[in-house]
Design a protein around this nucleic acid. Structure first.
Lengths: 268, 268
DNA sequence: TATAAAGGTGAATCCGCAC
DNA sequence: AGTGCGGATTCACCTTTAT
């Protein structure tokens, strides 16, 4: 099995080629099935650039469920018994995804709330500002007790207090947000590296293998490399694959701040 | 239909007696199905293990799902078309509940995160401190556009800025926590009144009817009365019914702070 | 050059009525 | 069901332009 590669192909199809019990961690940021129907304007009459990508369109809940059962089932197969999985979503999809994961036998360890520091407001005043996304962190089954959790490292990362399941992190904007040749965002839903840093730092060891079946522009690979972990990315869109490969190739330095990489063993 | 009463009886059975389309708001704090450890043991006290684990777990999920589909279906029936429903839960049950609500046709408006200011730490250091519960706020269907949301009131309540879907509220402790004759807490999962205050203030008008099918010690009734709303509580346990009735009877004053009750019409 | 003002934007299930 | 139109509605952060 090749590691530190971006595989260009269909998610489920490529997952099937990966040997059973070979992966330490899965991070998955699947399509959310947003079901946006109208155009939304801000009070100043500018248009909100919503997610209308073709890859986020599903005909029904049944179709979406069936897709998720397929890729989640494969993820469970390729995980080591000591491995774990993170899946991110919003209320649009996370209750479908969570239900399927439970039915497949995954065991929820935490439902982590990404509390966005700068969410988009609800312009029309019809609901509360939607300020979160949810990350489900699961072991392979109820009896998988030896999953990796770097408690001491995360406690130190959090300033000496045990880290909770609420993470205050800003949106991916500014220099971190990858732009295309036209100056517009290259991907509708790029995640902040800080999110992946916490995921990988908390639930893998050095030299572990992280698999991301919806690689996009490669945030998971970038964070894995900076933390001294290995990655396998699967992505269907040619454009994203190219961006991800270039992005990761350009990474020279690891994240050494606070000595995570040097001192991990001592802290642990 | 009687209002401002605590009905002693089975949840689904009593819900069936309530006329269709008569309720403005449902708040439900159902049993959380804390992993049903007991079903992993057979009547002869031998432990279910091996390949049977998964089947049994799914079996217990099915039982919980069927119970939830029953009471949630009845709640949907008794709601006005302009009504809405709140359901609170943790990762143990909210993904089952959310999935069922979607299948019943409810339309998610927000997934509100109750961010506990003082959660119980994870003593073993095996996971992140579980610091949240989730509230699902839903309208009756996708086409129910006229649900109540007091945007301006909530914005004012939040100090002039739009309220987000993350609510920082402490656990129900101290004087607010109802104690039994033995000095121990009367109910294991009593919710803070602040939580119910936000729920009722945001999504009902004065004189609306709030139904709580798992009334417990009556927090929903107490908050409703203090906010000038009507309540109907259903509770199976005799002890809780008595506590709730006494608790609500003892409420004399309404919540007048910041002039919510007097000025609601003007703010709105 | 420094500071201020103006403009852009983010996984969003975002109006209500008359015709 | 679809269209058209009057009217109400936003927060944090970053970039660009103006003073």
């Amino acid at each position: 099995m090749q590691i530190n590669v971006v595989i260009h192909g269909d998610c489920v199809e490529e997952l099937r080629k990966i040997p059973a019990g070979s992966i330490d961690l899965v991070f998955a940021d699947p399509p959310y099935n947003m079901q946006l129907k109208n155009v939304l304007y801000r009070p100043n009459n500018t248009k909100v650039n919503g997610v209308y990508d073709h890859w986020d369109k599903f005909g029904s809940f049944a179709e979406y469920d069936s897709f998720c059962a397929a890729w989640l089932g494969e993820c469970r197969r390729v995980l080591k018994d000591t491995g774990s999985i993170w899946v991110i979503g919003t209320y649009h999809n996370i209750f479908r995804v969570g239900n399927i994961m439970l039915n497949l036998g995954f065991w929820i360890l935490n439902d982590v709330t990404w509390h966005k520091t700068n969410p988009m407001p609800n312009f029309m005043g019809t609901r509360f500002t939607n300020a979160t996304e949810t990350l489900l962190w699961c072991s392979k089954s109820e009896t998988s007790k030896k999953y990796v959790f770097n408690h001491k490292i995360m406690k130190r990362y959090n300033g000496g207090k045990q880290m909770t399941s609420v993470w205050r992190i800003g949106l991916c904007t500014g220099a971190e947000r990858i732009k295309g040749a036209d100056g517009k965002k290259a991907h509708s839903t790029q995640k902040p590296e800080e999110l992946l840093k916490r995921v990988i730092l908390s639930s893998t060891n050095r030299d572990g293998v992280v698999l991301d079946p919806f690689f996009g522009t490669g945030t998971t690979g970038a964070a894995a490399k900076k933390l001294g972990r290995n990655y396998i990315g699967i992505e269907r869109e040619t454009g994203y694959v190219e961006i991800a490969r270039n992005r990761i190739a350009g990474i020279g330095e690891l994240w050494e701040e606070a000595g995570w990489l040097e001192e991990e063993k001592n802290i642990r």
